[in-house]
Amino acid sequence: MTTTDLAFTIERAKNQEPIGSPCTGVCKLDPAHGLCAGCFRSREEIKGFRSMDDIAKLTLLDQLLARRSTIAPSPAPSPAP
C-alpha cells in the first residue's frame, strides 16, 4: 500500500453518500502501534465508523494520512550511483 493508494481511498470515501470507509483491504492491526496497517484506524475507530456522523467521519479521514506519515515515514531516496 502506498500513500497514494491511501489518499485515493480517502478521497473516494469523502465523495460517497453517505461518507464511505477508508478501508484499503489490508485489515491487519499492527501490534506496534495498534492501528490498521492499511487505513491507520484504531480498532475502536473501525468498529464505530458506521455509527459516526459525517462530521466525525470526515475529521477522522483528514487525520489518516498524517498518522501514516508519523508512523511509517517514507523511506529516503537511494543515492545515485
Rank of each mutant, 00 (worst) to 15 (best):
22 P>F: 10
12 R>V: 13
58 L>G: 02
29 L>S: 06
58 L>P: 00
10 I>N: 02
47 K>L: 14
36 C>A: 15
26 V>K: 11
37 A>L: 10
20 G>D: 12
39 C>E: 05
58 L>N: 12
16 Q>K: 09
48 G>W: 01
45 E>V: 03
37 A>K: 08
21 S>Q: 01
58 L>Y: 07
53 D>W: 07
16 Q>A: 10
24 T>N: 05
17 E>G: 00
14 K>Q: 15
44 E>N: 13
14 K>W: 11
19 I>K: 01
50 R>V: 15
48 G>D: 10
27 C>L: 12
36 C>H: 10
17 E>D: 11
42 S>E: 04
47 K>R: 14
27 C>W: 06
48 G>F: 03
36 C>G: 04
35 L>H: 15
49 F>R: 02
22 P>Y: 14
35 L>M: 12
11 E>T: 10
55 I>R: 05
47 K>P: 00
42 S>N: 03
51 S>F: 12
35 L>K: 08
33 H>P: 00
24 T>F: 04
40 F>N: 00
41 R>I: 02
11 E>W: 02
14 K>C: 12
12 R>D: 14
28 K>P: 00
30 D>P: 00
15 N>K: 12
18 P>T: 12
32 A>F: 04
57 K>Q: 03
22 P>I: 13
11 E>K: 09
39 C>F: 12
15 N>V: 07
39 C>L: 09
12 R>C: 07
23 C>Q: 05
30 D>R: 13
42 S>I: 07
47 K>Y: 13
46 I>S: 06
45 E>W: 02
28 K>R: 13
44 E>R: 10
19 I>E: 03
42 S>R: 01
21 S>W: 04
35 L>S: 01
32 A>K: 13
27 C>F: 11
34 G>E: 05
36 C>N: 03
37 A>H: 02
35 L>A: 03
49 F>S: 02
43 R>Y: 11
57 K>E: 08
